[in-house]
């Protein structure tokens, strides 16, 4: 456990407060590239505030699963965030927490799927089966890239993996490859553009959005906020690869972190603006290509160490 209470407080504050801002920044970037003015940067906060004030409606055929799922999803994702170091050490860290991090994200996905099947809507079942298929493929690449991190840093704790200013690194080929696969995983896991269109209005083509059709009010707020936090975690993970986090927190470290994440959000916005969504049957191919890149990174890392 870390001993610095102020650092932990700042970590938690950033983790809880900032994520919706980056959703707004991505939307703003996309609007800018498309030549529109776009919604204000803080729009996701306004949306969340609006949803919290609203009542909830449940389907007649739905059971208790739908009622507890949003909270479980949100808690799973936020607690995963406690293991990812933003400055120095993460609030909770121990050997092997890298696996727990991945599985907490998987718990979030599992409950999203379960709740989508529970409401008895055929659209949601379809979205859930898509999410399960694509999730199986993207998790493969995600785990492989975590293995590469473990191999290169000789540690199974995320805190020590990213404590690498002391060990080595910089702009090695392995890390650029890893960044590419993590970026593609980010797009796939958070249902961003080449895999899924977050703004689509046609249920038949949705993946993530179609699974949350039945939520309303506070529940929908939980889901949207959880999705924001998940995106934030993946962005922080990917950006830490290219630019390791500061060893201790300070005003300038927080500002630097904020700038890095803004850069990442703008990058995602640009990528989403310039790519077309691939056809659903082509998505597995994209994910397999991502897996092969992760495999390549693994092999380069292993051969570099002379195993």
């Amino acid at each position: 456990m870390a001993s610095d209470p102020v650092g932990i407080a700042i970590h938690c504050a950033i983790l809880l407060v900032l994520p919706p801002f980056f959703l707004g920044l991505i939307a703003k970037t996309k609007a800018f590239v498309a030549g529109r003015k776009g919604a204000p940067l803080l729009q996701p906060y306004f949306d969340l505030g609006k949803l919290v004030r609203k009542g909830m409606v449940y389907s007649d055929v739905a059971s208790w699963i739908v009622r507890i799922a949003p909270v479980i999803i949100l808690v799973a994702i936020v607690s995963a965030g406690l293991f990812l170091p933003l400055f120095g050490k993460a609030p909770i860290h121990f050997e092997g927490d890298i696996i727990l991090f991945a599985y907490l994200l998987a718990v979030g996905r599992f409950w999203t799927l379960l709740a989508a099947w529970d409401v008895g809507s055929s659209f949601e079942g379809m979205g859930a089966s898509r999410e399960a298929t694509f999730g199986a493929l993207s998790e493969l690449a995600f785990f492989l890239s975590l293995i590469v991190l473990v191999l290169t840093s000789h540690s199974t704790s995320l805190t020590e993996v990213f404590y690498w200013k002391l060990t080595h690194f910089g702009w090695q080929p392995v890390f650029l490859l890893l960044f590419v696969t993590l970026f593609l995983t980010l797009l796939a896991e958070n249902s961003r553009m080449p895999v899924d269109d977050p703004t689509t209005h046609l249920e038949l083509t949705m993946i993530h959005e179609v699974m949350i059709l039945d939520y309303s009010g506070v529940d929908l707020g939980c889901i949207l906020y959880g999705a924001g936090v998940k995106l934030f975690l993946f962005m922080a993970l990917a950006v830490s690869l290219l630019w390791p986090p500061a060893a201790v927190w300070s005003g300038s470290a927080v500002a630097l972190f904020f700038c890095k994440m803004c850069g990442m959000a703008v990058l995602i916005g640009i990528v989403e603006s310039v790519t077309a969504r691939v056809r659903l049957v082509k998505v597995p191919q994209l994910l397999i290509a991502n897996f092969v890149i992760a495999l390549f990174a693994l092999l380069v890392a292993v051969s570099g160490r002379g195993i």
């Binding site: 597995p284 191919q285 397999i288 290509a289 092969v292 495999l295 390549f296 092999l299 051969s303």
Partner: peptide, 17 residues
């Protein structure tokens, strides 16, 4: 198929290393 080609390419990669 292209999916299998890519997977096969991954296998070849492992073999080559």
């Amino acid at each position: 198929s292209l999916h299998l080609s890519l997977l096969g390419g991954g296998g070849l990669l492992v073999g080559a290393f």
